[in-house]
Design a protein around this nucleic acid. Sequence first.
DNA 1: CATATCATGTAAGAGGTTACATGATTAC
DNA 2: GTAATCATGTAACCTCTTACATGATATG
Lengths: 182, 182
Amino acid sequence: MAAVNGRPLNATAASLLGLLLDGPMTGWDLVAAAQRRIGDFWTLTQSQVYRELATMAADGLVEVGPPGPRERKPHAITDRGREAFARWLDAEPAPDQVRIPLLLTLAFAPHLPPGRLAEVIAAQRAGHARRLEGYRAAREQLRAPGAPAVGAGRLATLEYGVRHEQAVLDWFDELPAILGLP
Amino acid sequence: MAAVNGRPLNATAASLLGLLLDGPMTGWDLVAAAQRRIGDFWTLTQSQVYRELATMAADGLVEVGPPGPRERKPHAITDRGREAFARWLDAEPAPDQVRIPLLLTLAFAPHLPPGRLAEVIAAQRAGHARRLEGYRAAREQLRAPGAPAVGAGRLATLEYGVRHEQAVLDWFDELPAILGLP
DNA sequence: CATATCATGTAAGAGGTTACATGATTAC
DNA sequence: GTAATCATGTAACCTCTTACATGATATG
């Protein structure tokens, strides 16, 4: 019996519990579900998933069910897990955690060979434009008649993505003026 | 003589080198300088600074100068350090690394007690509004006549902050409609 | 039967956070 | 003299990433 009261959940573990509220899943399933449902604003790797599952099983937050074909090991959330998830969800979300390598490059741009900065900016802008298109397409698909019913949260996060990427693109378009580039 | 060719720089170490281009600094100085120059979009702790300095000293990227008063240990960038920094700066910046706890909460909002979601949103919005004001104030200060001369990069990153936070606030204002909140 | 996909996991290390310990110097 | 701040760093731990190892099953 490990950790009688369980350690405090980290956001990654809590998210896995949240996904398990829809029913038992294997680690493999969870990786896919996480990518689909929260992948746009939360990264997690397969390695992490198996580790968190093992930890949570030891803490009694999930239970391993009867193995299926191909070594499938379905994990189900327990009552303790539901409580832990509810406590986590009710807490104040931590502040955004943002690290933007491009802004580092920009901060040190005077040390960059001339012309290189413009290249870097163009490449980064293209990436953001691609992502904006992805978010837009996904949003339109969900808005279309006959679209699969989906939580409003999904629409809200897509809208976040669209607005953020649009703002970033607008910023890119102002950049030459700010930096005094040709 | 450790690591003849030096391991590849991580962004945090590289940033410290970038700051040292302005002249020798102690770990303490670097913490302050980093907070001021890149703190808006890159986090780093005191602990990390001392560790990276030790590693970089072992790799010959920085040199410890003659100690000053109060155990001050100025670190100066070496020629090897300058090369390593230039190589890092010239490389393609990694994609943004973003984790937004609020969006996790939103993704699982159906499991939240009624009313709690609105509270959470209000609190988070206030935080973003505060940050927007901070960026705006800093930007106006730099634009004012007689402002200290400062790199265009600083203005560009402030502009990024302003636009990002403004987009997030706009999104907050759309949220009730998207989520069907009163 | 070969290849792709499903599915498990381990190992090793990098990067990051929090908390603590220690002492010098400056300002009141 | 005492409190704040400067300045060093260590210890412990957590989280995340990358790479590897292993084998079952489905598809052509």
